[in-house]
Design a protein around this nucleic acid. Structure first.
Length: 464
DNA sequence: AATATTCACAACCGCAAGTCG
DNA sequence: CCGACTTGCGGTTGTGAATAT
């Protein structure tokens, strides 16, 4: 590892971060936010450059990091996304909550590449190795120069779709209760960015006149396939397929790897959805709540799973201003859950997270305090309002109904009714799964408890 | 037990894009 | 418009633990 030029000038520290440095940085950022990174080290009393601080925060100290080993599901998702996006690690990471681009990149370089080769798949093109070798024999220059991200052929997309359908099926078998992508800003931002990337690929590649690339039509096919799978699978389960969710950003729940349930599930599988306020199809409403009742998500559960005990309160009077009380938050222990020896140190005081922490603004509250006031009417208005020729993919990603209507060139209202009829079964059969059936749920079913608890749990999950 | 090798991960480098005065 | 500065990203490499010899 080298040293930034600025580090030479200022004789700054390099290399691994000590717990003390971590604590300083964490305390500073939780208290004041990072603001301008270049001023952070000075303000925090660190002998590091701002760039280094930023990296440390993003890759290690950020409270929404999941850490721990990647699940099979995550690995599959990374492989799929890499096939589409290439080495756009940040975009891939955006689809895997709690994972950093660096982490994914490392996993890819150290592990997944190898695995793919063992399966006879070229990790660059995601084609069978034999095919790639043949191709290189015939046109080595073209093969070498082919942009990975733009090398998404229809064949590959079909493979991807097929794989994804399997993934969806597997998820459904794995657990019947799943989750719905949050309807919050985070989703919009992230799904937008990731899908934009795919479309960017199209644009870029189309510019080069390559016909064998992802076209808007293939995008449609891709999404249509997913949505049909969604409808099909959804009709036999009480939840949308988590595979559908898989390509959407999930709420930033910071589950440690060793806290995974026996389902080996992605965090989304722990969640169900409240549709109570919306009255619309529960799949498309906004607020996500843990399917585990709060009573089951006690601090002991969390501490035994995560290695440290959060104690977080959100002022109920003004939830839009995040103010957290954190006890003994020691992120450097997350990588070594067994080592709690220094648990008495750490930030044992209270630290307050200011609202300039984009994480809390964008993630916790967009998810946890999601809009519970959506109505069916609003949803319908949304549909009606979207009767336009231009395809608004980010919206479609959020609203499968909208997407299906566009794809099937069908009147949205009729389709809405059609799907509503179909999905009515879901809500009817989902006793205990959806907050509609609140009498079966406890303690989540209590509408009085719900918002506050949701805040707290959301904050806990987000911050743990 | 000592040394060499491998591996996963953390961190740095350099570039590009964006922002601001 | 320009240059300084900041931020974000992807590629690369250093570090240390685990494993092999």
């Amino acid at each position: 590892m080298g040293r930034h030029s600025c580090c030479y000038k200022q004789k700054l520290r390099k290399g691994l971060w000590s717990p003390e440095e971590d604590e300083k940085l964490l305390r500073h950022i939780t208290k004041y936010g990072h603001g301008c990174w270049s001023s952070v080290p000075k303000q925090a009393g660190l002998q590091r450059c701002g760039k280094s601080c930023r990296l440390r925060w993003i890759n290690y100290l950020r409270p929404d990091l999941k850490r721990g080993t990647f699940s099979q599901l995550e690995e599959n998702l990374i492989i799929e996304l890499h096939a589409v996006l290439g080495n756009r690690w940040s975009q891939i990471a955006a689809q895997l909550p709690g994972r950093t681009d660096n982490e994914i990149k490392n996993l890819w370089n150290s592990c997944l590449k190898k695995k793919l080769r063992q399966r006879g798949i070229d990790p660059v093109t995601h084609k069978p190795l034999s095919e790639v070798e043949d191709g290189e024999d015939k046109n080595p220059a073209a093969s070498r120069n082919q942009d990975k991200a733009s090398a998404v052929s229809n064949t590959e997309l079909k493979l991807l779709k097929a794989d994804h359908s399997k993934l969806i099926g597997a998820n459904l078998q794995e657990k019947r209760s799943s989750s719905i992508p949050p309807h919050g800003n985070q989703l919009e931002r992230e799904s937008t960015s990731s899908f934009k990337a795919m479309n960017d690929n199209n644009n870029n590649t189309n510019d080069h006149g390559n016909n064998n690339l992802m076209t808007p039509t293939s995008n449609k096919d891709f999404l249509l396939d997913r949505f049909t799978a969604f409808l099909h699978e959804g009709s036999t389960s009480n939840c949308p397929p988590s595979g559908f969710v898989g390509h959407f950003p999930l709420p930033k729940l910071n589950y440690a790897s060793n806290a995974r349930l026996a389902t080996n599930s992605i965090p989304s599988l722990w969640l169900s959805q409240t549709s109570k306020a919306s009255g619309m199809n529960c799949e498309f409403s906004s607020t996500m709540i843990p399917s585990i009742p709060p009573s089951a998500v006690t601090s002991s559960f969390i501490s035994s799973s995560m290695g440290y005990k959060p104690s977080i309160t959100v002022p109920p009077d003004n939830p839009s201003l995040p103010s957290f009380t954190t006890n003994s938050y020691r992120p450097w222990e997350t990588g070594a859950p067994s080592n709690n020896s220094n648990s008495s140190t750490g930030s044992n005081g209270s630290t307050e997270l200011q609202s300039n922490s984009s994480f809390f603004e964008n993630t916790i509250f967009s998810w946890g305090l999601g809009d519970c006031s959506s109505t069916e009417k609003e949803a319908q208005n949304h549909l009606i309002g979207s009767q336009q020729e231009d395809i608004r993919w980010p919206e479609y990603l959020q609203n499968p109904l909208l997407m299906a209507a566009a794809l099937q060139n069908q009147n949205q209202q009729s389709l809405y009714n059609e799907i509503k009829t179909e999905t009515h079964l879901l809500t009817e059969n989902s006793s205990g799964m959806w907050p509609d059936n609140q009498q079966d749920q406890e303690p989540l079913q209590n509408p009085d408890i719900c918002p506050k608890d949701m805040q707290r749990i959301t904050a806990s999950y987000g911050y743990v």
